[in-house]
Amino acid sequence: MSAPTQSRKSRQAGAGPLGALKRRFSAPPRRSEPTRIAAAFALATVALALVPLINASPPPPALGAAPDFSIFTTAGSIYSLSSDLGRQPVFIEFMHPDCSHCRAMGSRLEAAYAEFGTRVRFVTVAVRLPGFADPTVASVSAFAGEFGHGWTYGLDQQTKARDLYRVVGTPTFAFIWENGTVARMWPGEMSAGELQGHLGALVGG
């Protein structure tokens, strides 16, 4: 390649490290380039294939002590999380009665309660969300009744539980070990299989 052609290309690409990078990537490929591309894709595939192995290693790491909170239950009493912490695993659902995904989880939670209800404490906390009407005892009771949920349902009227657990949307689930530490926070819907897997991990099954 002649010198004038080279300098014209250099001017087009610009000076400095960015220009050098552009010149390098505008050049014809070296003989080893296809091999390097194939190697990068192979490496990504291997990394993806390793994910199931990493996920399969129990138990999930603890995220710290579960913050305590109190809520007004739909039965008219006050429930405090501290009454269960350290005694048995706890599963908390943060939800809103108008949330379609919480509704989609209704029957899955009922099935999970039938299997784990005697070994894991189920608690549902109705939270206030921006843009949604505040949950009321009537709306939350109607929601629980619709799916036949028999566990504790309460209202987080002061948004303390929501803030402590950094709930930004519903549903959000908290899995708490028997020793009172948070095993996992899960924002969004989950499948029946995932729910069963995480609850099974809580009880060591």
């Binding site: 995904h101 924002p187 969004g188 819907e189 989950m190």
Partner: peptide
């Protein structure tokens, strides 16, 4: 990426 009522990869 499963955050909130309208942002969910799982769903």
């Amino acid at each position: 990426c499963s955050v909130g009522d309208w942002l969910s990869c799982n769903t």
